[in-house]
């Protein structure tokens, strides 16, 4: 990715089963439309490489974090944000 696209990019992170389904865990993605939300990105990435989770909308079981804090899937993203898609949590 070159510098001109990276400056308006967000860092997308996937974890656990989502990461393995997609075949990647971290990627810089340029914001091509304004505003862009995590739900938009989910659709776009699924369309782009067909692997993240299919082209369907963001399933309710997937939680979103922006800059390492939980957020709603329709929050507008800013360049430089880190957005993560989190499959169901199983800690403890």
């Amino acid at each position: 990715m070159n510098a001109s696209t990276a400056t308006n990019a967000v860092r997308v992170r996937l974890f656990a089963a989502l990461r393995e389904q997609a075949g990647w865990g971290e990627r810089l993605v340029p914001l091509t439309a304004s505003p862009t939300s995590p739900a938009d990105l989910w659709q776009r990435l699924a369309l782009d490489d067909g692997s993240a989770a299919g082209a369907a909308g963001l399933p309710p079981s997937i939680r979103v974090a922006i800059n390492q804090a939980f957020a709603t899937a329709d929050t507008p993203l800013s360049p430089g944000d880190e957005v993560a898609f989190l499959p169901p949590i199983t800690g403890g």
Partner: peptide, 19 residues
Amino acid sequence: LKHHAPFWKREWSGGRGTW
């Protein structure tokens, strides 16, 4: 923490991992 701290478990059995 079981529901709201980001941890994910994978079980390994018979050499295979299952989330």
